[in-house]
Design a protein around this nucleic acid. Structure first.
Lengths: 156, 156
DNA sequence: CTCTGTGCAAACACTTTGCAGCTAA
DNA sequence: TTAGCTGCAAAGTGTTTGCACAGAG
């Protein structure tokens, strides 16, 4: 489902690795062995790893790399949009007392979560192969971006 | 958008508060002032508060309530499905090196995140009133449930 | 040579756990 | 009365920050 066929997948990874140095330079970042290793570990994993997981994997290549470096590198990659932070993760627990169906928009700047309800989103049905394999308890449409208030404030 | 008209909303909240003790008892939970206060703070907020936010609000009513109690109460409410934890929140940061459009399924037991790609989900468009108000950077369909491996293991 | 990136250590923020006393039922 | 709940304190986990040295450009 996620990794595709062996050979095709390996080619794709190689392609990505080859393109990486250029991406770094374009963003004004230096190409260090640590960065290469972190990026490699990230794209080789189809587990959506945490920093900790990437850390373990990179250690096999660079035994003395530190967790901080991994952390910082991943955040940097997210900044230059070469990686993403999985929606919602990394945030303090947020609670919701609204039982009726609704959707969430989260502001990436101020972390505000805004409810909205758009009827068509209620009807979303899970693809069969997923529904068979997993017990799906919740289906949500989740939007991320910059909210009206934050947009007014700064621009960056 | 989220709160509705003043009066109708107030009625709804009252209704929820009135129904709450019964919900507790049905779940075998005692009805304590703290629990009432936490629940009230939760449903009165349309901000999807964190434990900290609820804590501040309940303090106005019960000045010596502790953050732990708030925390535990919110988790308890989530357990009896009278509240929900906003999707993904409360988790360690997870990274994603896949740039192509895809969707995530997260197992609530083992925290594993599984990619899938279901074409119809790519076409999801943001409702106009949202798109005008906010800068939407990411639109995702996000599923939560129990994965195949965890289903095999335990049952509960 | 310069300036970014790295490793180490300390500081932080949030959550969880254990326990003794309290209280709803 | 008594099982469950609360408050306090301590430990745990993940993340961030400051600094000196190392290494990419």
């Amino acid at each position: 489902m996620s990794s595709g066929s062996g050979r095709a997948n390996r080619d794709k990874l190689k392609e990505k690795m080859d393109a990486f140095p250029a991406k770094c330079r374009r963003a004004g970042l230096k190409v260090t062995p640590q960065r290469m290793a972190v990026y490699k570990a990230l794209i080789e994993s189809n587990q959506h790893p945490s920093a900790e997981m990437v850390f373990h994997k990179t250690r096999e290549v660079i035994p003395n790399i530190s967790l901080d470096t991994v952390n910082r590198t991943l955040l940097t990659l997210a900044e230059i949009r070469t990686a993403f932070i999985v929606e919602g993760s990394g945030d303090v627990k947020r609670f919701d007392g609204v039982l009726e169906t609704h959707q969430h928009f989260k502001c990436l700047k101020c972390r505000r979560i805004v409810d909205f309800h758009y009827k068509p989103f209620d009807k979303i049905t899970v693809p069969k192969n997923i529904g068979r394999k997993f017990t799906v308890l919740k289906t949500t449409v989740y939007l991320e971006g910059i909210c009206d208030l934050c947009r007014k404030r700064v621009d960056k």
